[in-house]
Design a protein around this nucleic acid. Structure first.
Lengths: 199, 199, 199, 199
DNA sequence: TATGAATGAGTATTCATTCAT
DNA sequence: CATGAATGAATACTCATTCAT
């Protein structure tokens, strides 16, 4: 009988094997030849598991984002104030670990989406955005329920996600300091959001 | 010195002549050949007045942004409420006139900045950002002075500019509706910002 | 021996199953994967019954040509004049039914033969040519025997087959109208061939 | 001032320089790199003078055909019988000199026209066909005028061109012997065409 | 007998920039 | 001052065929 291969597993295997070279070379400078060689397979085999180069990059970026999402989800349940959760939420992407490289890839992905982006890429981004927004909605709702922040906060959650994206861009294009910007913004925002305990 | 002035004028002339084809073709699809032909000069001559293709695109985008800035500046002096000024400020870029095409070019410019951006592009973006931020600061300060909004507003102005940039991206990459997002955001924000009259 | 028969039957079964997709996709755009899927077997299995892709296409084209040959043979026994038989003979391939699609495949087959043709393809074409020539010889001989056309006609039969092939090409490469060309040619030819009844 | 180049001359120069490698490698196996190297120019330069690879091949094939046409035109004025002119006309293409290689290229060109041919190729073939047909029409008309052949000959001239094309194909695809086929055909044909001197 | 996973060669084309005139 | 001819690097993807099971 024929060899049985778990297609889904092999997809993941190939993608995992190529995580590092993607981070090293970036989307545009990563070639199919490199991918094949790194994964220890033939070029043709790559196309047995991925529709095209974009498809591979998607798969890898998805793992990055999924990982990031998981970590953001952990914030929800931390035993800290809502304000601190917000700080964690926005700081997280700009931590000084390897997520820095991942951010570069994501930025490149965005740049491609902005110019030659396909519907598929838009759907992908839309879905990601929604998941992140949901997490922030949770954190916010909890803060409201606990009486830490005002109800109006929910109305600006979506804009905060937009702000986060803008910051990812401006860190690169306008030399912004992300931690500083986040701090200034959140501090001012929480002056408005926090319920003044009447005295 | 006359020669210097002439040189500067010719730069402007060439840039002006190419505004429309830039809007039509976009940065990447606009070739030096087209530029030279449109400006009625030789390809080599282009390089007498501009360092490279990027340099020409800069010159043109600068006129767009300068124009946009002027219009934003007009908002400052309008006889409307601060809240309305904010709405004008953010709506302006998403109006359905030709600024739509200009926005596409700007988006493309951003995408380039995000990947292969030079220090020059960063300086350019940083300067632009500052000018826009200043306008919003003015509007905000006036609102504060008039007692319409709370003082804390100044602390979020920079973040609002970041939000605006993020929105420009997300309109394309996550199919956001800019007017809707702006409205939701500003309405909620002003609930927080507006001074509650007497109590 | 039973196995051999089965093998031959399966060849035919596979070929038959793929007739339509060959007509739909053409030789070059038809893949072994499609063939295997259409025939309901594995890719490797295809090679149990056929030497290579070419071999399958042969098998299918053979059925087309056999069918065409049968229909041409019917012309021989029709109760019409020799001239009319000639018209039928040459018109037949250019009728507006599905033989049009078959002609496209045959044209593609010719194009392959013309460039990367193997000895096998040459033998195949030679044999086909001979069979068609024979039919035309029959029609011609009968015409001679009946006193309708001159004896010299036999000497040009082979050239007529060559003409027919040339026409198949030119319909595509020089935008010829086959019916028109056939009519002009045959009418003139029969002016030369037909025996003038004594006066 | 800028270098002035006779674009048309350079086109011809490049084409001429590549005649031999085209004959050697064939259309499909000839690469732009080879063309550039052979012509002693850069790959990019090739595209300054030719739209694409097809365009170069056209240019070269055109010289072959033009040359062939010239030689056919010489036949018209030879002091030989009409029948002999016909023999020369059809033999010419199958002479044992380098025209054999040229015929291979033409055959490959036809094969391409038959499958992935563009309108441009069709126009090209149509024009060539017309020119050859005209020559044969001249020869024929002269024969008629001289009383050597019957008037009906004009009606089959176009078909003779088609026959010639068919023969070019069959020489390769059905192992025909061109001289033999031409001889058999023309001898029989002239039995029909030649005016019987009244007795 | 049947399968299907793995393979890998091979090529046209664009365009910003330079520099000889 | 102006020109425009010349350049050349760089990369995705297909599919017939094989052979281990």
């Amino acid at each position: 009988m024929a060899i049985v291969v778990d297609k889904e597993k092999k997809r993941t295997d190939i993608a995992c094997a190529c995580k590092e070279i993607l981070l090293e070379y970036g989307i545009k400078n990563l070639t199919i030849s490199q991918i094949a060689k790194t994964a220890g397979i033939g070029k043709g085999t790559v196309y047995e598991y991925f529709k095209n180069k974009e498809d591979i990059v998607f798969e890898i970026i998805t793992t990055f984002i999924t990982e990031h999402e998981k970590e953001l989800n952990n914030i929800v349940n931390l035993d800290i104030s809502t304000k601190e959760k917000f700080f964690h939420f926005f700081y997280h992407m700009h931590k000084a670990n390897n997520s820095h490289q991942q951010l570069n890839i994501y930025r490149e992905f965005l740049a491609i989406s902005m110019t030659t982006g396909t519907q598929e890429m838009i759907d992908f981004s839309t879905a990601c955005r929604e998941r992140f927004t949901n997490i922030l909605h949770q954190i916010t709702q909890e803060g409201i329920d606990k009486g830490e922040i005002r109800e109006e906060a929910q109305g600006i959650v979506s804009a905060l996600i937009t702000f986060e994206l803008g910051l990812i861009i401006e860190v690169h294009t306008a030399a912004r300091n992300p931690k500083e910007d986040i701090e200034t913004f959140l501090n001012s925002l929480f002056l408005l959001l926090e319920k003044k305990e009447k005295k």
